[in-house]
């Protein structure tokens, strides 16, 4: 279980998170929605210790992330797959080498790495693309490789940072389908940060709206769709003020 406990984070004078509290249950996919710049990605980075909170903490299976030493933090990171907004692939490596990078760190032998890479690429429909370089791929393919890199680790948790941003509707639907398939295939707990409502409705078990640094509403997809909260309604309907 992932639990945000009264998380606060500021960058200079800008208070981004101001008491974020949220619980993600094992096995569910929680979608965090919110306006651009409201701190969704910042919240996600706290889960893997890429950012330190000013106050509060994130607890992953009871472990307070900000208090972990380097070894414990690396152990935690081995349980988590992270899909970055723009995939964050290593351009100098091939697709297969990108997917294998995290596996090498885990000390797996070459045969097992090759097997896992093949399996992960097959799951994202990129069989045969292993020898291509990351720089040669389209945006949608890069995102799929990013997902393959995360799922090859067979993580307990998988975090998606804006997985459909910048993609056309059809490619977005492909990524949504992949996220659902990943969850069914691996049974992972997921946190998806997005402002793409179609994606949120497709992949989410529950949706939480982050607004002004804290959770404005959290509920099932149906509950959020029927909300009376004017701020949440305006956002999900995409109405300008």
């Amino acid at each position: 279980m992932i639990r945000f406990e009264n998380l606060h984070k500021a960058f200079g004078d800008k208070q981004v998170l101001a008491g974020l509290t949220l619980e993600v249950q094992d096995g569910e996919t929680m979608v965090v929605i919110g306006y651009s710049g409201t701190g969704k990605s910042v919240a996600l980075k706290h889960i893997v210790g890429l950012l330190d909170p000013d106050a509060g903490d994130v607890l992953v299976d009871g472990r307070a992330v900000s208090t972990l030493d380097r070894d414990a933090l690396n152990a935690l990171r081995r349980e988590i797959g992270y899909v970055f907004q723009f995939a964050a692939l290593f351009d100098s490596l091939t697709v297969a080498e990108n997917v294998a990078l995290g596996l090498r760190r885990r000390g797996l032998d070459d045969d097992e790495i090759a097997e896992r890479v093949t399996e992960a690429l097959a799951l994202v429909d990129l069989t045969g693309a292993g020898e291509r370089y990351a720089a040669e791929l389209s945006g949608g393919m890069r995102k799929r490789v990013g997902i393959a890199r995360a799922i090859a680790l067979r993580p307990r948790y998988i975090l998606y940072d804006e997985p459909t941003t910048g993609l056309d509707p059809v490619t977005s639907a492909v990524i949504d389908r992949l996220m659902v398939r990943t969850r069914e295939h691996l049974g992972v707990t997921g946190v998806v940060v997005t402002h793409d409502m179609r994606s949120a409705y497709t992949v989410g078990d529950r949706i939480a709206m982050l607004h002004e640094g804290r959770i404005r509403q959290v509920g099932t997809v149906a509950e959020v769709q029927e909300t009376d909260d004017p701020v949440v309604r305006q956002f999900i309907e995409g109405r300008p003020t």
């Binding site: 890429l50 988590i80 290593f90």
Partner: peptide, 17 residues
């Protein structure tokens, strides 16, 4: 370039220093 494209963050999440 690696820093601004989050490749350094990606390394950390893969448990590399």
């Amino acid at each position: 370039t690696m820093k601004v494209t989050e490749q350094v963050d990606a390394l950390e999440t893969l448990a590399y220093d």
